[in-house]
Design a binder for these strands. Sequence first.
DNA 1: CCCCAGGCCGCGC
DNA 2: GCGCGGCATGGG
Length: 217
Amino acid sequence: MRSSRSELLEVYETLLNAYGEQNWWPVDLRYHREMGSDPREEIVIGAILTQNTAWKNVERALDNLKRAKLLSFEGILKTPVGKLQELIRPSGYYRQKAERLKNVAEFLNPVSSVEKISREELLDIKGVGRETADAVLLYAGNRPFFVIDAYTKRIVKRVFGIEGSYEGLRRWFEDNLPKDIKLYKEFHALLDEHAKRFCRKKPACDKCPINHLCTQP
DNA sequence: CCCCAGGCCGCGC
DNA sequence: GCGCGGCATGGG
């Protein structure tokens, strides 16, 4: 297996040069300043809403929550589930997601608990799977868990010829990268951007910035 | 009309 | 442990 640390870092550096810093996770700091709420709660809420859903639709749901001044754990908890469903409807799976928002808001309140909650405890919350847990730990908790998603799996399979389970791939990234929070955040964001721009289902290899590093021409 | 999007759960095996 | 159906909106 061609899994050298330097090759993975070279992919990272090349994507960073090609696309620039992504600065994930996107949050509306102005909103939270005005409301006196914690921006980390928007990250957790967004992580639930974006499950198998285009970010554009998530933004509509987040906008609805903002206009209702409910983009916070307290807002989620005090809103009747029917009303919550209505607000998040554009993000799809709105019945499931309304329940999941209630669950995470309850268990992660106060949001400062993400600094010390275990990954296993997060996974015990109904509606929080591995990717959501790692996204919360990394982007809201600033802790070194590499996030694997469908885009990441596709790129790793093509570039390195490696397939694996979620945990297998997460270990592979964490074993082959320096334990650097900023790097983890930026790399995951860059992989998603790359999957959207070039490494689509039908890849555009001819203009791909890392085609010289890829096993699949 | 089709397929897809920053997954997860519950089930059968 | 793995594979599958269900969940739902909005865009291409």
